[in-house]
């Protein structure tokens, strides 16, 4: 599996990173704001450090009519992107920084669900002055 290329960023500036996600056909994950408190939302998070994720933007969900809920349920399917906007601390020295994060999701199709999973992410960032 090829490693992702480092994202260039300037110390003291902001940087936006898009994370593409692809689901197998027929499956969906809950949106970041599911209507039922028992449903597990899609959640992207980044560890605290010299990069502050000040905004995470989820795509507009599609509304899926599912038999277990009275109103259409917002979900993500197919290919979509999750956007994170980071503020890079001015004190970060130039060089490569690996930024750890997590993506939590829970996938279903119309007949069954798979257990929730949390996968570890590593975002390589090349910091310059």
């Amino acid at each position: 599996m090829p490693k992702p290329e480092p994202v260039p960023a300037k110390a003291g500036a902001s940087v936006e990173v898009k994370l593409p996600v692809q689901l197998r056909e027929g499956y969906h994950v809950n949106s970041n704001m599911p209507p039922d408190p028992y449903l597990i939302p899609l959640k992207l998070s980044w560890d605290a450090g010299p990069f502050t994720a000040f905004e995470i933007v989820y795509p507009k969900p599609i509304l899926l009519k599912l038999g277990f809920f009275p109103t259409p349920v917002p979900v993500f399917t197919g290919k979509f992107e999750l956007t994170t906007r980071f503020k890079v601390a001015a004190s970060v020295p130039p060089g490569l920084v690996n930024l750890p994060g997590k993506l939590r999701y829970q996938a279903c199709n119309d007949r069954m669900c798979l257990p929730p999973k949390t996968i570890d992410l590593t975002l390589p960032v090349s910091v310059s002055r």
């Binding site: 994202v7 500036a13 902001s14 898009k18 994370l19 593409p20 996600v21």
Partner: peptide
């Protein structure tokens, strides 16, 4: 200020 980069996260996909 807002440099937009696409980062292909193979692991997640």
């Amino acid at each position: 200020l807002h440099s937009v980069r696409r980062w292909t996260l193979f692991a997640a996909a």
